[in-house]
Nucleic acid binder design. Structure first.
Lengths: 326, 326
DNA sequence: CAGATTCTATAACAGACAGTTATCGATCTC
DNA sequence: GAGATCGATAACTGTCTGTTATAGAATCTG
């Protein structure tokens, strides 16, 4: 019934003392004020302004409206300002989820970028593997997820979500073969998967294990998986001790070094696609967009270095003692 | 930019959890909500609602708006309620001015009526003679004035105000001649003004004095005004002591009794018109209207009694000692 | 006292806006 | 897989909210 515009007009009349002055101060024409007052009067059913001579004076009811204008309008301004702060990246909150090994460099770097450019944006971050992070995204508990999929597979959900989600490629992570530095293959420039039929394997996370099974299956055998752990530091330790070999994404190898482990490119080459996932709606939220951009940028930087690193890792020759598989 | 309607919609969406339910609760159609949200989103430049599946969820910015809706809308409601209270006579304030002798019965009775029928209406009352009360009305310091004019004269202002003011007749007050009870004329049923050429007069307020001068002038003489006082109790005392005679409106005689004073009708008959004056705008203010109505009603009651009283006063015979004029 | 100025009211009009109904596509449920 | 439910969209409509132009009234001024 009564709207903010009406209050604004009444306050202006109270402040300025005349319709004309009120119109001027609000940037309206004089008849607009005249009509607005009349509208308000018919709506409230009361006289709000007393027309005396060539000036006007507010009646008691009019003064009531003018008096209420302050609180209401400032509350509205506060709301608008708060939204504008979010829109203008002076504020905002992003709930980010990423799988563990992305937390090592990609995510921290992106977080630092966002913090540097938009100090007002706060990002909460938690680790989750792709299936859970997508579920959280779908459940509204997460705004942006960093997930991965091995080439040729999906993100762990059905294809139903193809248009419910927006996927932005971040990195193409090459999957390497990690062997003890003194393994017989450590010197080869490239290892054929088929040649690893008799090796003992160490599997990582469930999806990584699935990927290993798939690779072996394509090479025509079922791998002997002796160990399973999601802790890549442990994986490296196991490899270094000669207890097995593993397929490990380059991104992880870059973080978890081990002197006694060598990484080699494989045939067929296998890649892990790291992507950022959000929804079309959330992607338009400025803070989410900014974080996504930061992720893309730090992925680009990491990708440049990755090329060097992969080459180095791939060509690094091994010349140490072989350790029998357990 | 953001208006109350927008906040109301956002809050409804937050409360109800869907556009359709929000539309239902607000009495709108579903597309109206859909469009409203889109409008708000373009205006704020941010996504406010996350469309997930067949349901919706508020983004951070959307939650901000929904959160602000409460205070703003309740403040608006409070304003509306307050105005409605004034319009609906559950509240309201009337500043009433009346000339002194109207304060005796007419005004108190009207005040009592208003208080009984509309306890929320508060009336402030002050005494003022017609010229001042009209000035106050014009100056906005008064909402309703009770004034009087002797028949054939105006209210003390020029006729310029004929349409700026609204005048409501209240009483037709007959002007009587007050003489000592033992005055030689006290027995007459009706006294001719012309026969009072040699009397000594007591004048009341300035305008009453003017009225006396006019009556005498019409009768062809200039009265000998020996005393002037606005205090009618004093006037009665003076008359009772035989120091002079006076023309006094019946309304006053009804309040200020004096055993030793008789009141007689005069020829030519002279009347004092008591009216209520306000402005067209103020007349539409319910509290003012109610007070005006109460005045009219109590005037009607007083008028009925006045007939009886005047007759009695006029026919009351005097049989006491004559007192020489001073 | 008359003219100038300044204010509000009104008329006529234009555009935007906020609703409507009808319909579609998508999703969740049984 | 069928039906129900929900949101998006299209097309349309009426009202509302501004505008400009002009008239009328009141105050100020010379």
């Amino acid at each position: 019934m009564i709207d903010a515009a009406g209050l604004r007009v009444m306050r202006a009349i109270a402040d300025e003392g005349s319709f004309t002055a009120a119109a001027l101060s609000l940037g309206y024409s004089q008849p607009a004020i005249s009509q607005m007052v009349r509208r308000l009067e018919t709506r409230t059913g009361t006289t709000l302004v007393e027309r005396v001579g060539r000036s006007v004076r507010l009646t008691e009811a009019g003064q009531v409206l003018a008096r209420h204008a302050g609180p209401v309008l400032s509350a509205l301004d506060a709301a608008e300002e708060e939204v504008a702060a979010i829109a203008g990246l002076r504020s905002g909150r992003v709930r980010l989820m990423a799988f563990p090994s992305a937390s090592a460099t990609l995510v921290p770097r992106a977080l630092a970028k966002v913090k540097a450019e938009h100090p007002g944006v706060s990002i909460t971050f938690s680790e989750a593997e792709p299936p859970e992070s997508l579920a959280a995204l779908r459940a509204g508990e997460c705004d942006l997820a960093v997930a991965f999929a091995y080439e040729g597979t999906d993100l762990g959900r059905g294809e139903e979500d193809l248009d419910a989600f927006v996927t932005t490629p971040l990195l193409d992570d090459e999957v390497l073969l990690a062997v003890p530095r003194d393994h017989e293959l450590a010197a080869s420039g490239n290892v054929d998967m088929a040649a690893l039929k008799d090796e003992t394997w160490i599997a990582g996370c469930p999806r990584c294990r699935g990927h290993l099974l798939q690779l072996a299956s394509e090479a025509g055998y079922v791998p002997d998986v002796a160990y399973e752990t999601e802790d890549y530091v442990a994986v490296m330790g196991l490899i270094a001790e000669g207890l097995g070999i593993a397929v490990i994404p380059d991104l992880i190898l870059r973080t978890v070094h081990h002197e006694e482990v060598a990484a080699l490119p494989m045939t067929p080459a296998s890649r892990r696609n790291i992507v950022a996932v959000t929804t079309p709606d959330l992607q338009r939220v400025p803070a989410v967009k900014a974080t996504l951009d930061a992720l893309v940028e730090s992925a680009r930087e990491a990708s440049a270095k990755a090329g060097q690193r992969t080459t180095r890792g791939g060509t690094k020759s091994a010349k140490c003692k072989p350790v029998p598989t357990a």
